[in-house]
Nucleic acid binder design. Structure first.
Lengths: 152, 152
DNA sequence: CTTAACCTTCCAGCAACTGAAAGAGCTATC
DNA sequence: GATAGCTCTTTCAGTTGCTGGAAGGTTAAG
């Protein structure tokens, strides 16, 4: 056993190792150790502990963390990740549920994109009308201060 | 103008300067009273107090709050609002500064839009490839779990 | 005088982490 | 076996921008 102790960190990335310390899991999942501990706090992934108190992650727990990392990267909230995970772990799940979930998320993202597009257009318009020299008059500030004669 | 009735009655008798309680400022600015108090906590707008301890907003303080409301609506952070306000209140400000600020914000918003577009496309693609029936296989979950054979 | 609508402060919590402090454990090297 | 230099532990606090609620004081109206 002692042989593997340091090799875990250096070499063994993909082999089926019995258990992993948080540092290794952090490395292979790409999640900061802080975040992984936080995920334990919120009961997302609760690893066993070694005698010395160190967290001890199984391969499947590491996989779960990687799953969460991907789902978060796709814009799912932690709670949504929980739902996805339970669907993932449910052998009798309906993929229809997951599809519905994903499409709802798509609609939410698209709404947000529309809002941001409006913001960007408004700001850009204001900036274009701003002469950008040292004269004190500025359409952007005028607009913000509610001076209606500033724009258009 | 019904809003002002009570306040006018009360304040005009005492002084020519119109000052407002938080409820009135909330109404005319559209910001919740909670938010306005929070803005005092973070030293954005610190009103005087009446003898009874009530907050007493001047017209210009109310204007500042309206300014902040608009700027927040345009996606500026509180700290950015602070900068905008100091530019606004600086008689010698260069509108170039404001323009630069706004254009930077536009770029940030556009970056965010691009990210969201990618997310939306990925999710949408996965959903389209999901048959959406009760079979347990689901490309979305397969993708999240890192199964490369799932997609394409 | 009572009641309702104001106003006040303080405490707590949301999401999803991140930083820092203080201490214990482990490993490599001398 | 001492020591340097990692990794690991817990706990508290902070981030951003608010929002909710409790407990209580003030004011206006009927």
């Amino acid at each position: 056993m002692a042989i593997f102790k340091r090799q875990l960190h250096k070499n063994v990335k993909k082999s089926r190792v019995l258990s992993m310390n948080i540092g290794l899991v952090s490395e292979i999942s790409g999640l900061p150790a802080k975040t992984i501990r936080y995920y334990e706090d919120i009961a997302l992934v609760k690893p066993a502990r070694s005698q010395n108190g160190y967290r001890n992650y199984s391969q499947s727990e590491a996989d779960t963390l990687i799953f969460v990392k991907r789902a978060r990267g796709l814009g799912f909230t932690i709670d949504e990740c929980r739902s996805l995970l339970s669907l993932y772990q449910d052998k009798n799940r309906a993929s229809a549920d997951v599809k519905k979930f994903a499409l709802l998320k798509v609609r939410q993202i698209e709404t947000r994109i529309k809002e941001l597009n409006k913001l960007s257009a408004t700001l850009n318009h204001l900036a274009q009308n701003c002469h950008g020299d040292n004269r004190p008059d500025c359409p952007i500030l005028n607009e913000l201060s509610g001076d209606k004669s500033a724009d258009e």
